[in-house]
Design a binder for these strands. Structure first.
Lengths: 207, 207
DNA sequence: GCTGAATTCAAACGCTTGTTTGAATTTTCA
DNA sequence: TGAAAATTCAAACAAGCGTTTGAATTCAGC
């Protein structure tokens, strides 16, 4: 492939990641993407075979980027004490509340998919990529009694992920009335502890 | 108002409640509503001044119906032991997992609004209706140490509501691969206990 | 029964969506 | 350099959306 076309492709990809992270798949139009990327309308269909193809590629990039993250390395998580691993996981999930970096965008895209999976994700998963819900399930399992069923562990993981993503996905919402939350470092630290403790006490002693 | 026009109005309202509960506000088109209600396309604008006006009315009906519910009567909740009140609240929130009755539709509509509030709800709240998030906050507060800040209680309530609604809103999703949850009476009972215990142990000892 | 208001209806409007077209331009490679 | 391939571009397409129109119909009250 030629250099100039790579530039267009990357511009689209970058704009798409930012917009999908902010507004989700349905909330983002191709016209908004090409405007942000400053490319032609037809470029998305030419380079990605349509909006769905582009989103598929975005999921791929986000997933690869996510796996490259230190704190998510499965082995590293397993080597930590379970309490520390849990807190690290939660903190990472809440990262988009503070930072606006690329990793935060990846996490936020998955936060959208987490409760409202698009049909694109379904195909993406079939392609061979393992949804990180499995990692969350494994993590949660360390707090559950031995022999806990897959179903119970899955539900616990869903609940944990749901608690994080509800804050991430609706960040803007919660900063306004009637919520009026001030989202700063102190708040995120507190929230990290809060959710971790919730999971820690709740899962370990409850189920 | 004349009888025949009331019939049309009610038919629209009924169809809208079912569809909004199933697919949310954005996921429901006026054409789908009039098709289900078997009325003319223009009827929604005539009777409700547009889709938003209809949704406003749906929220009103849902909210009134919700308040008529025994288990949500604020006084009744307050008279219960806090553990029983919590379990009752959670069970009620999970009701749409099993039943397909009118009350379940109301709860499900609020489950949609819970994480992705429409601008219509904002106006609805301003009109004077108290979002039931406040009741949840009060309920949660009984488990928190005296003097807990409003912010902390609010976050705990959001987390609690989020845990319930993620299951309610994505019911169909979770019955399919890769989740494969079987949603029956036994599961809902277990889930009720699970989430209640999660909140009970987590909130009471964690925050 | 007549009159005016209320209601229904088919059709279209204006807008946004994702996608396609086909010509113009640029890049690649012999 | 010249021909073929790759890429960009403005424009239009087809479909869906919520809404409006204006005539046809039904209703209520004198």
């Amino acid at each position: 492939m030629s250099r100039p076309s790579d530039y267009t492709r990357n511009a689209i990809l970058k704009a798409a990641i930012a917009l999908f992270a902010e507004h989700g798949y349905d909330g983002t139009s191709v016209r908004a993407i090409v405007a942000k990327a400053r490319v032609n309308q037809a470029a998305i269909n030419y380079h990605f075979k349509g909006k769905e193809g582009l989103y598929f590629e975005v999921l791929k990039v986000a997933f690869e980027g996510y796996l490259r993250l230190d704190n998510f390395d499965p082995q590293r998580l397993k080597d930590m004490p379970r309490e520390e691993a849990l807190r690290s996981f939660v903190r990472q999930q809440l990262r988009p509340l503070l930072a606006r970096d690329q990793m935060s965008r990846y996490i936020r895209i998955f936060a959208w998919e987490n409760v409202r999976p698009s049909k694109v994700l379904a195909n993406f998963v079939k392609t061979g990529a393992i949804p990180f819900l499995e990692s969350a399930t494994e993590l949660v399992r360390r707090f559950l009694p031995p022999g806990t069923s897959d179903r119970d562990a899955l539900c616990a993981a869903i609940a944990l992920m749901g608690q994080c993503s509800v804050f991430v996905r609706n960040r803007e919402q919660f900063t306004q009335p009637p919520f009026n939350l001030t989202i700063d470092e102190a708040f995120v630290s507190w929230l990290t502890d809060f959710i971790s403790q919730l999971a820690l006490n709740g899962i370990a002693r409850g189920a």
